[in-house]
Design a protein around this nucleic acid. Structure first.
Lengths: 226, 226
DNA sequence: GATCATCTTCAAACATTCTAAAAGAAACAA
DNA sequence: TTGTTTCTTTTAGAATGTTTGAAGATGATC
C-alpha cells in the first residue's frame, strides 16, 4: 500500500481527500498545518505528498522548496484554489511535479496520482535505447530502425511501442493501455487499441500475421517479448 | 454485464439513459426519486451509480455524501443541469467521481462510464507469483510452467487456478466458484465448473485421474492443496 | 444395487480479435 | 481561409478461439 502524506488545513477537503484516497487503497497520513506537515514529510518515507498551496502558517510554495532542499524527492502534487495561482506553482522553480485546481473531480485526482507514481517509478530506468530482434528503437531521437532501414512511426504508435518495451513479458490489457498510453481524459474504444497493434505488427514484425514480438492473449490483452 | 443504478426523476432523460446504456450492454436499474435510489444503492451491489443533482425529494449532493458515509464506494457519476452547478459537485467534498453536464452526447456519457469503470477495476493488490509442486504461476505475465515446459491456459482456466491458489486448503463449493470466478449475473450449469476442473487437472496434474492438487470433496466442492 | 454426484467428451453457440476500409480530426502549406 | 496531407478513431464482416451444456460413462454413498 502506497504511503501518501496530505497537508491540508480545510477539514472538509482533508476528510474528503482521506475518504477518496482510502477508497483507492492508499495509506494516508494527514497533517493540518505547514510545520507539522514539513516534519512528517522529512521523517516519514512517503511515496507521494499532496500539498495545499494556502496553509495558515507556512506557504505551500515554501514547504515545497524546503523539502527539495532537504533532499526529499518524493513527487509533490499541489492543490491550488484559483487558476491564477497555477502560474506561481508552475513557472517558478518550486519542485512540485503536478498540480490540481480546486474544484476537481476525484476521478481526475486519482488519475493524476497514479500518473505521478508511475512516472517516478520508471524515472530510474527511463530507457534511451532498446533493441530486439532486428529492431532498434531510439527514444530520444524518436527513431526506429528495422535492420538498416528507417521505419516511420506516428507519435501514438511510438508511445505504444515504448510502453510495451518498458514492460517486456507482461500481459497488458486494453483498458490499461487506454488508461496509460492514451490517458485518462481520452476516450477511444478498445478497438482502437487493436488497430494500433495491427499497425505496429505491420511495421515491425517479419510476418505480421504470425507475430513474434507482440502477442495476443485472448481475453487478457497483449504481451511484448524480445 | 455491469450493473448500473440510475437515479433520475425526469422520465424523458431516464428513458433516454436507459436506452443508451442498454445499447452498450449494461444492466440498468432505474429509480425516480432520492429515497428509493438511496436504498437501492445501499442494497444492490452496483458497479456504477449515475445520480441526478436535482431530484424532487432529496438533493443529489446529500445522497452522494450519505452513500459515502455508509461505505458505498462504487464510482458515482453526477448529472448536472447547469454549468454553475459543477463547482458544487466537484471540490471532492461530496465524493462524486465525475460529472456530466446536461445536455450531453451519449458518446461522452458512455466514454466517461467506461473510463470510470476502468479505473476502479484495478484497485486491489494481487499476488504476482505462486509456486506449488512442479508448477510455477506468474500472474503478471500470464505464464504457467510445469517444470521447464510452458503450459497454455485460457483466461478462464487461469482465473480459476488463481482463485484456488489464493485459497489454498479451503474447500470451495461450486456455487462459490460460479459467483466469484464467473461473476454474479452469469449462471452457467454447474457442470461448467466440473469441465474446468477437468481441464486444469489435465494441464497441471501429473496423473489427472488421480489428482494431487485439485481434490474433489463429494457434495461439498473442491480443495486446492500445494 | 439403487441412487445421486462427478467425470469425460464434444460440437454448437457464443465472444473476442483481426483486418481493411472509410470517416473524422488535426496539422500544415498555399 | 482553403485544400492537402497525415494521423487517429470508428465501423463492420471475417476469422479465430473459448465457453457452454448435453449426454453417456464412471464413481461414490447409503
Amino acid at each position: 500500500m502506497k504511503k501518501i502524506l496530505v497537508i491540508e488545513d480545510d477539514p472538509a477537503v482533508a476528510e474528503a481527500l482521506k475518504a477518496t484516497l482510502a477508497q483507492h487503497y492508499f495509506d494516508i497520513t494527514l497533517e493540518s498545518n505547514g510545520e507539522k506537515g514539513f516534519n512528517q514529510a522529512k521523517a516519514g518515507n512517503f511515496e507521494l505528498i499532496i500539498l495545499d498551496l494556502t496553509l495558515p502558517d507556512i506557504d505551500g510554495i515554501d514547504i515545497c522548496r524546503s523539502l527539495r532542499k532537504e533532499g526529499i524527492n518524493s513527487p509533490i502534487l499541489m492543490l491550488t484554489g484559483r487558476k491564477e495561482e497555477i502560474d506561481k506553482v508552475l513557472g517558478l522553480e518550486i519542485g512540485a511535479d503536478d498540480y490540481v485546481t480546486k474544484p476537481f473531480s476525484s476521478n481526475e485526482l486519482i488519475a493524476r496520482i497514479h500518473a505521478l507514481l508511475r512516472r517516478t517509478v520508471q524515472k530510474k530506468m527511463e530507457l534511451e535505447e532498446y533493441t530486439f530482434g532486428d529492431i532498434h528503437l531510439d527514444f530520444k531521437k524518436h527513431e526506429v530502425f528495422k535492420g538498416e532501414t528507417a521505419v516511420q512511426l506516428s507519435a501514438m504508435e511510438f508511445k505504444l511501442l515504448k510502453y510495451f518495451a518498458e514492460r517486456e513479458g507482461e500481459v497488458i490489457s486494453r483498458d490499461q493501455l487506454l488508461d496509460e498510453v492514451w490517458g485518462y481524459d481520452q476516450y477511444p474504444t478498445t478497438r482502437t487499441v487493436d488497430n494500433y497493434i495491427l499497425l505496429l505488427r505491420k511495421k515491425i514484425e517479419n510476418d505480421p500475421s504470425c507475430p513474434k514480438h507482440i502477442l495476443t492473449f485472448h481475453k487478457a490483452g497483449y504481451k511484448f517479448v524480445k
